[in-house]
Structures are given as structure tokens and as C-alpha cells.
Write a protein that binds this DNA or RNA. Structure first.
Lengths: 239, 239
DNA sequence: ACAATCTTAATTGTATACAATAATTATACA
DNA sequence: TGTATAATTATTGTATACAATTAAGATTGT
């Protein structure tokens, strides 16, 4: 189960006091992570406010928090939109992950407990389940949660928040650039990691995580094109 | 000169559109970095709003942005305070810097241009000048700006923003825990880095930056105590 | 005198109203 | 018919007013 602890730790990421602002922030956050909100979607203050039954004031605060995390882009006098990471940003984010997460995995391998291992297994199971149920969005969200769980286990809050932020943005990148519709979302690597953790083998954990991330990075189609927005009008006009 | 480019890039960190919110955010940010606002200082919305001649609405947004960057701590129904990083947080932040910045330095060494080198020299000169003028706060702020400048030169925006955030928080940590009142603030390392950059020697740059950060970390007095807040009353009562 | 409780004051949380800006549509002209 | 300009609409930016919560001070009882 993703359970309570996850959202509790997310509070850390946004640094918001408990309250409606945080609630909306988390709801939008999970909606984006589960790919229910596509990159580029406009998030009107009025609209969001009406949906969640609150005023623009609190919606605005939530949107700004998400903007700070890179999940939302605010354009002056134009409003908030779900971010659309550029190809370059995508490269940078996965390079940053490849720098940070292997180190985090090493640290986690040292300090991991039996209950932690149990939780990770539960994560993997839930991921499998969602995948089997055809809920791709949730499966992906859980796959990300697996990575953040490792950072939490390593018990390094500063790095954990960085990882959380990077993974959230990775979700957007995957929504835009993923090119393996087939793939049983890298569950093999997660199992391999689990074994390294069980053995408290820091070297192995670091190495596996590193190649896992390189693998993910290479699974993206990061080559120009894909600017479906502007070209759409042209295409329709041409046809 | 810290110049315009720096504040322009800071916009990236806060992800705020141009406007009064960003202005106040930057003003508070520099005030904290220059140690004119001590850790723990209360930042009342009314007070700050009156100082900058704006309403609470915009001040609130600025404070929340700073909270997200870890420079300000917001307590529910109690208000915003300049953050007071714990000892543990201090360790984590400098360990994160030791992980990220050497890599960034290596990348910068590869791509650095003549004009970039010139700018770095100017940074060092300005730092010396401020130090000579006795403006410790500004000297420290410029010392941090040197590190962020390297990240900008490396041209990795994602990592650069992480570094920026870490350095800002480091400034608070130094305000709380620095134990070398003497020291000509690590300018030697900065010169050594400059040489490595001029030689485009990535290995050297990485190594120098790494030991520089370890050196900074070890210059902190991170041993319990220092909780002057609660004990202050007790001390006065005892006397 | 000390402690506990209640009252009061001050500050933040939220909603709403107004102003400013940008996008869209309509209109006039070439 | 296409383009440029102007009016309109819709949305965000900001300020202010009110509600809720917390902290501090006063009051009462032991």
C-alpha cells in the first residue's frame, strides 16, 4: 500500500502547513502522477476552485507550490498549466537521477530493516496488480513510489526530497516521451534491487540502480519532433 | 558584480512569474543570505507587507515560495520564521553538496568559456573586496554566488537549481554553526578551482571542489548544544 | 503566592471584490 | 478576401474584509 506515510512525507516536499492548500496540492499532484492530467492542460483557478469547493486564494497557493516543484508552469497573466518538460529538461532530469539515486540506493542498502523490505515487496506487488488490472497510470505512479520509498529508507530527507521532485517530473517526461508501450515496466530491476537490499549489498544496489536509470533514460524517445501543439493546426490546415 | 543574470536565474528557482511577489521573495532571499535576517526571526505578514508597501496576499505568496526552498518555516496559524536548520539537516545538506557540486564542477570545466572565467575572477575579486571592507554578510553571499555561478556555467539547469537551493540553506547553516571567525573564507580553494577551470581539467576541478566542500563541512561546529532559545530563559532565571 | 481557567488581543486562514492584463472576437479598411 | 485595428470577454493580480485559531494576560480559587 502507498499508505499514509507517503503523503505525510510529501508535506515535506511542498513545505506547506496542513490544510486545504496542501490537500489540493496533493490531489493535483497524484492526478498528474497518474497521468490523468496531461502535460499542457490548463489549470484555471476558478475551475479548480469550483471542483474542490474552495476559493481561488487557496487554489492559487497550491498551484504555486506545484510550480515550484516543476510540475506546473505559471505564465504571467495567463494562468497555470501542467508542465511540458522539454527534451533537454528530460535529459537533465534523468542525468540528475543517475547521479543521486544510485548513491541513495547504496545508503538504503546499509540501513534497511526487515519491515522496510516488507514494504518494498508490497510496493512491487501493488505495482504488478495495477498493471494486471490495466491501470497504467497507477502502475506508473507506484513505480515512482518505489523509488521514493528507497530514498525514505536511506533516511536522508534532503536527498529524498530531491528524488521525490525528480520522480514527479519524470512522470511528466514519461507521459510525453515514453516509447515502449509494451514493456512490463522495469519490474525486473526492482526485483534485483530488492535482492541487493536484502543482502545489504550497497555496491550491488548502487550499480543496479544506476543501470536501471540508464535503461529508463534510453527508453525515452528524445529526438526533436513531438511538438504536437503548434503542428496540430498546421496539420489540420494542410489536410 | 553579482549583476542581473543572477537574479534572473533565481526566478528559475522560485518558479514565480515576474511581479511584486518575486521582488519581495528576492529581497528576503538576499537579506537572509547576507545574514541580515537571523535564523528564527519572525516574518509577520503585516510587518513585511508594510515594509514593502504591499498587501498580505503577495507577501504570503513570497513567504510560501521561500518556505518551499527551505529558507523559511511556516507554522500553522503561527506564521513564518526564518528557518533554523538542525544539525542533522546541516550534515545532510553538505553531504548532498559533496555529491552534486563536484560533478557540476567537472561539467563546468569542460564547457567553460573565456568570458565565464572572467566573470568568476570578478566574483572572487568582489568577494575579497567585501571581506576587506568588513562586510562579512556580503562576502559570504558572494562566496555562495561563486558556487552557483559554476552550476550556471555547467549549463545544467536542473542541477543548478538544486545547488542554488543547497547553497541558500548552507548560508543559514553557516550563520548558526560556523566556528572559524578568523579564516579568510576559503578563497584559496576558489582560486585553485579557477585554475582547474582555466586548464579545462575536469578531474582536478571535481577533486578540488570535493575537498573544498569537505573542508567547509568540517568548519562547522555540529555538536549538540547551541539551542540558545529554550535555554536562554533558564539561564536568566538561574542567574 | 501559585496554579488553573477564562477572557482578550493579535495573527493567520479564507473568501470576495475590484483592477489590470491578455486573448478573442468583431469591425473597418485595403 | 485578407489584414489590421478596436472593442469585448475572460482570466489573472492585488487588496481588503471577515472568520478561525493561537498566544498572552487577567481573573479567580485554592
Amino acid at each position: 500500500m502507498p499508505d499514509k506515510k507517503d503523503t505525510h512525507r510529501l508535506h515535506d516536499l511542498f513545505q506547506l502547513p496542513p490544510g486545504r492548500t496542501l490537500d489540493i496540492c496533493l490531489k493535483l499532484h497524484t492526478a498528474i502522477l497518474e497521468h490523468r492530467l496531461a502535460p499542457g492542460t490548463k489549470l484555471s483557478e476558478d475551475e479548480v476552485g469550483e471542483i474542490y469547493g474552495t476559493s481561488r486564494t487557496v487554489v492559487r497557493a497550491a498551484l504555486q507550490a506545484l510550480a515550484h516543484s516543476g510540475l506546473v508552469k505559471i505564465a504571467k497573466n495567463r494562468g497555470a498549466f501542467v508542465a511540458k518538460p522539454s527534451i533537454r529538461e528530460a535529459h537533465e532530469i534523468f542525468e540528475a537521477r543517475a547521479l543521486i539515486e544510485p548513491r541513495v540506493a547504496r545508503m538504503a542498502a546499509k540501513s534497511i530493516s526487515e519491515t522496510d523490505l516488507e514494504r518494498l515487496r508490497a510496493h512491487i506487488d501493488a505495482e504488478h496488480e495495477a498493471l494486471h488490472a490495466g491501470d497504467m497510470g497507477k502502475a506508473l505512479s507506484l513505480s515512482g513510489a518505489f523509488h521514493t520509498a528507497i530514498a525514505d529508507i536511506a533516511d536522508q530527507q534532503v536527498l529524498a526530497n530531491m528524488v521525490r521532485s525528480l520522480i514527479s517530473r519524470s512522470s511528466l517526461i514519461i507521459a510525453m516521451y515514453w516509447q515502449r508501450p509494451d514493456t512490463a515496466c522495469e519490474s525486473h530491476s526492482h526485483h534485483a534491487l530488492l535482492k541487493a537490499f536484502a543482502d545489504h549489498d550497497g555496491d550491488a544496489a548502487e550499480e543496479i540502480q544506476k543501470s536501471h536509470l540508464i535503461d529508463l533514460h534510453s527508453g525515452l524517445n528524445l529526438v526533436e519532433a513531438q511538438q504536437q501543439d503548434k503542428s496540430l493546426k498546421d496539420i489540420l490546415r494542410a489536410g
